[in-house]
């Protein structure tokens, strides 16, 4: 690996990280798991002047339920999420997605906050968080704010983060009883980016659908929220017809491009198939 020249710092506290970012602005880049950044630097597609390694900052990796939220620390590794009993019992769409992220090597290093901040439309966590209606906590040396993930993701590799800001944690609304979820992913090979993936989260109330969340991976310029499909499901009976209609609406909301993974037509058809299958699976879990 022969990247361009860069400087490197490894602060011990969040405050130091934020002070460094404030000082260096867009010259600096946070190094978390490095699973996207390092390959880009290797190919010299990215040449940051300063790497701010956050791996030595304590307290940024955790998964816990407090108050109204599941809180996930930004530096939590995908492997930890894959192994979390809490996610398995209460957040099946996250539990499904975690082991489908790339391969074990990438999961051992890659972090949830890094994935969201990278904003790859083929990234998995964005869709999952959209389906769950999650928020991110963002800090800078002077400010702290909390925004929904739908406002974080702007475009391909583009977020609403300022270069001086850092995501510190992810907050997922606690899932009520009678909830279920699923993440279905088509990949050509382990470690490949998704051809198509769909995140579904479903909450039932007295047999009808109280809330449905649907996120789509790799079929647009960013992770997409299938809002029309969500709206059509809210308050509806969970019937095969309703799911089929939601799947159709989700496919309509997608705007994939044709490439070596398949034609746009194929990918739309797969969104439809996967959303339908994903809803079936989520319903089964929600009914217990």
């Amino acid at each position: 690996m022969f990247p361009s020249r860069f400087d490197y710092v490894a602060p011990d506290t969040v405050e130091e990280v934020l002070a460094t970012l404030a000082q260096h602005g867009d010259e600096a880049k946070i190094l978390a798991g490095g699973q996207s950044l390092i390959p880009l630097m290797k190919l010299r597609f990215a040449s940051p002047g300063l790497l701010v390694d956050v791996n030595r900052v304590p307290g940024l990796g955790f998964v816990e339920e407090t108050g109204e939220h599941l809180r996930v620390g930004t530096l939590t590794r995908n492997t930890e999420l894959e192994r979390s009993a809490l996610l398995k019992s209460g957040y099946p769409v996250m539990a499904d997605a975690a082991p489908m992220i790339s391969d074990p090597l990438v999961r051992n290093r890659g972090t949830i906050g890094g994935s969201l901040a990278h904003a790859d439309p083929a990234g998995d966590w964005g869709s999952v968080m959209l389906a769950l209606g999650a928020e991110v906590v963002i800090k800078s040396s002077t400010d702290e704010r909390t925004i929904p993930v739908s406002e974080l993701l702007v475009n391909t590799f583009t977020t609403s983060l300022d270069p001086t800001e850092m995501i510190t944690e992810i907050r997922v609304p606690k899932t009520p009883a009678r909830s279920g979820g699923s993440y279905l992913k088509m990949e050509r090979r382990v470690g490949d980016f998704a051809t198509v993936a769909t995140a579904v989260h479903l909450t039932l109330d007295n047999g009808t659908i109280k809330r449905a969340g649907i996120g789509l991976t790799a079929v647009g310029s960013k992770n997409l929220q299938a809002s029309a499909a969500e709206d059509a499901l809210a308050g509806a009976e969970p019937t095969a017809e309703a799911f089929e209609e939601a799947a159709r609406l989700a496919a309509e909301a997608s705007s994939p491009s044709s490439d070596v993974r398949g034609s746009a037509e194929y990918k739309k058809a797969m969104v439809r198939t996967f959303v339908r299958r994903g809803l079936d699976k989520a319903l089964e879990l929600a009914r217990g």
């Binding site: 390959p39 190919l43 391969d103 050509r188 090979r189 382990v190 470690g191 490949d192 980016f193 070596v260």
Partner: peptide
């Protein structure tokens, strides 16, 4: 590169 040129892993 090996992201685009896919070699099968032990999984597939």
């Amino acid at each position: 590169n090996f992201m685009d040129y896919l070699l099968p892993t032990s999984w597939e």
